[in-house]
Simulated scan of single mutants.
Amino acid sequence: MSDINTTLLNSIQKIEVDLAEIKQALHELQRQFSNQFAPAVSAEDLTTMQQSIIEQSSLERIAESVKRAQLTEYPDQLGKQVLNTGGKFKGKNKAQKYNLLLQILHEQDWKARCKEVPKGQPLPPLVPLSDHDLTVKRLHLKTLGCTVKHDIIDKDYPAASKEWKNIPEKNREYYMMHLERLTKNGGLHIHQCKRMRCARSLLRESFKSDNQTHKRRMAEKNKTQRDISDSLLSSSDMSETGDVESPIMADVLSPPPTASVEPARKRSQRSVNAYFTEQYICRNR
């Protein structure tokens, strides 16, 4: 095993030992604190507290359920869904679709501003979004989609299979409307898309991105483990084949010959010497 691998494994083992000791010390401190400061609680009081916690948790879940139901009951409360993201978007990649949608939303905002201009005054010009503006807005949409995925969905479904389609449809509507509310607060009115298609697409992509990141990290972790295993196996093979030494090393490392093999070795040495002597004589004739 190389010095680097040995040092790495020793460091990992030391960290694991240190963590175990810290956890054990923390557990002991918690036990001492509980014994010293915790008041004596009767079984009846403990049951009452547990029941109160359960009731409070139930009330919080009911309140959250009612709030979500009120939000999904009126899908047009943020504004009418008037944009059809169908025909114009066919044959385009994701970036092109979002760029087109952002330009359409930008035009919608321009039309809304024009309606507020008093009659007789010139209308503001419609200036398309630049490539830089489109990139920034796309990144903002993606960030908000990931925020909803991580801060809300993962809390509601911590053990669920990480697929958007596995979330119940009613809850999906809530998540999409929540995302639309966030984007509207940021000046992006994706709530105008029919059937909440933009919000649906953003959340579906956030699931896909997380899955790809998880797979990549697992692949890197498995590769690291394989590399360590291969290194250990290689080192093991070297130690097992270490007894098969080269003739030179065998001659250097082998113990002094015993009396039984000494005559044979002397005869071999005399034969070698005679061979080289004969070659020398032939070259000098």
Rank of each mutant, 00 (worst) to 15 (best):
R283N: 14
N93V: 05
A159H: 12
P118I: 01
Q51V: 08
A20Y: 00
L46G: 13
L83G: 03
L126G: 04
G91W: 00
V272H: 15
I53W: 10
V272P: 13
E220L: 13
E180L: 00
S34Q: 10
G79Q: 07
K266H: 08
S34F: 14
M1S: 08
K215N: 10
Y275N: 08
N211Y: 05
C146R: 10
A274N: 15
I190D: 06
E44P: 04
P124H: 00
M1W: 05
P168M: 12
G187W: 08
I15S: 12
L253F: 06
Y74L: 14
S2L: 01
V148T: 02
V41F: 13
V41L: 12
I104Q: 00
N5H: 15
R138G: 04
Q279K: 07
L126N: 07
P257F: 02
P128M: 00
E116D: 14
I4G: 12
S235I: 07
T85W: 10
Y157F: 08
D3A: 15
A20V: 01
F37H: 06
R283E: 14
E55R: 10
E55G: 06
Q32V: 11
N5L: 15
N166R: 14
D18F: 01
E205G: 11
K23M: 08
V252K: 14
C282R: 15
Q269R: 05
P124W: 05
K155E: 03
L101R: 07
S34M: 07
H140R: 06
S239Q: 09
L78E: 04
V41M: 14
W164E: 00
H150V: 12
V148N: 03
H106N: 07
